[in-house]
Write a protein that binds this DNA or RNA. Structure first.
Length: 424
RNA sequence: GGAGAAAUGGCAGAGUGGUCGAUUGCGGCAGUCUUGAAAACUGUUGUACCGUGAGGUACCUGGGGUUCGAAUCCCUAUUUCUCCGCCA
């Protein structure tokens, strides 16, 4: 959520940036917000004045009662009854305006960084680099959904029976490979100073609002209505919300957390060949990294996070490319996002495996996560997060890229974790 | 799941209808003393909003109510603790 004072002071800049994100009706919404805020100020002043008067009278009544001037007190009481009605009226008015402002404010996306490329579709994303060698497969090479069946690694049909499409059952070496990747990712993150946390995978609505999934992505999350809890779409939600309503000290920063969780996404509206096999699932595993930093350090931090994720892909010997997302392809709350995509050799396409973003104060404003700087001034911290990494598409490209006529090679770095170096 | 108790500032913990944004201690910050530090002593120390300012308003877990006036009384939600039951 943008800060109202920031919008007021930088209206032109905000509009210019929102245009990069192709946010429709930006000007009319911003104008409505500012106008409502003017009304809010007026309403508060009226409410405060009435309350001040009532408070003063109550104090007088108290003194009169004490000194035995009962009759005078009774006359004053009559006066306050009238004031009370005004008070309620102004209060209701104020509350209504505030609710209206909030309702509009949460629909405004974060302002992108000025270096974000203009554009509307994934085709407009800027390719930052391409690393690694695209493998040339043998004649009989097949996509991963055939390999997982052939080597009995994943049973998609069984998942359909247990739950539905998009909930695969991993078996044998397939299951072990999952565990190996998770452990490898966590070990590497903790070796870089990230503190490992294990968090709930169901969160309440406050947490959903805190990181911006609500109200923007309401329909994308599984919702347990009986208890009004949401299954997390990413560990970002619980991990970042650990700092909701928290006042940090500057010496606490940067905060670096990592955590493994399953992730749940309804993916309403997705279908077709792009969702085959492991390409798009309703439940998948992911290790997430989250940082909270001082504002002036967040972009530097974003780069180190991106480099960290790249190092994982290099270790896994997967060819990848880095994209700087254009305004139209960025998420609601992000100010700058890098996507990392691995090459899927049998499908002949790039698969997104990580998204690394700087949210600046967009989340911390909602979370009310502040810190005291060296001058004793409190201000919002910046929050960042990135996938490091999401498993399914990593598995897809590992299997496809490393297939030989006899079986599948496991990258060296994973062998200590899997206990095998070949699947056949 | 049943019965009871509780929720106050960064922390601990007073406060049971008016003079309470809230005693006190610890912690933090500043100063005195000291070569420096510790100890001791002195002062200071919540957040948000409105107002050019003086100042005003709100907040004692959240929400509602009673009252001229609520941290204090009532209702409700949530959480915690104790006892009982159940249980990976």
């Amino acid at each position: 959520m943008l800060q109202l004072s920031y919008i007021r002071e930088n209206k032109e800049d905000v509009l210019k940036r929102l245009a990069i994100k192709n946010f429709k009706d930006a000007e009319s919404i911003i104008d409505s917000i500012l106008k409502l805020d003017d009304n809010r100020k007026l309403a508060q002043r009226q409410a405060d004045d009435v309350k001040a008067e009532a408070n003063g009278l109550a104090k007088q009544i108290g003194e009169m009662m004490k000194s035995g001037k009962k009759e005078e007190a009774e006359t004053l009481k009559l006066k306050t009854t009238e004031l009370k009605q005004h008070e309620k009226q102004f209060d209701d008015q104020l509350k209504a305006i505030e609710a209206e402002i909030q309702k509009l404010l949460v629909t405004v996306p974060n302002t992108p960084n000025l270096t974000v490329p203009k554009g509307k579709t994934p085709e407009d994303n800027e390719v930052v680099n391409e690393v690694g060698v695209i493998p040339v497969l043998h004649d009989k090479a097949v996509p991963h959904w055939e390999l997982t069946t052939k080597f009995n690694l994943i049973d998609f049909e069984l998942g359909v029976k247990l739950t539905g499409a998009g909930f695969p059952v991993y078996k044998g070496k397939g299951a072990k490979l999952q565990r190996a990747l998770i452990n490898y990712f966590l070990d590497k993150a903790t070796s870089k100073g990230y503190n490992e946390v294990q968090v709930p995978i169901l969160v309440n609505a406050d947490s959903g609002y805190g990181t911006g999934q609500l109200p923007d992505k309401e329909g994308q999350m599984y919702h347990c209505q009986v208890d009004d809890l949401y299954l997390i779409p990413t560990a970002e939600v619980p991990i970042t919300n650990m700092y909701r309503d928290v006042m940090l000290k500057e010496s606490d920063l940067p905060i670096k957390n990592c955590g493994y969780t399953p992730c749940f996404r309804r993916e309403a509206g997705s279908y077709g060949k792009d969702v085959r096999g492991l390409n798009r699932l309703h439940q998948f595993d992911k290790v997430e990294i989250v940082q909270i930093t001082q504002p002036e350090k967040s972009y530097e931090t974003l780069e180190t996070m991106r480099e960290f994720v790249c190092s994982l892909l290099q270790d896994l010997e997967l060819p990848y490319r880095t994209l700087k997302l254009c305004g139209g392809d960025m998420s609601f709350g992000s100010a700058l996002t890098y996507d990392l995509e691995v090459w899927s050799a049998a499908q002949q396409r790039w698969l997104e495996v990580s998204s690394v973003s700087n949210f600046e104060t967009f989340q911390t404003n909602r979370l009310k996560c502040k810190y005291k700087d060296a001058n004793g001034k409190t201000q919002f911290a910046h929050s960042l997060n990135g996938s490091a990494l999401a498993l399914p598409r990593i598995v897809a490209s590992l299997l496809e890229n490393n297939q030989t006529v006899d079986g599948i090679k496991i990258p060296k770095v994973l062998v200590p974790y899997t206990g095998f170096d070949f699947i056949d």
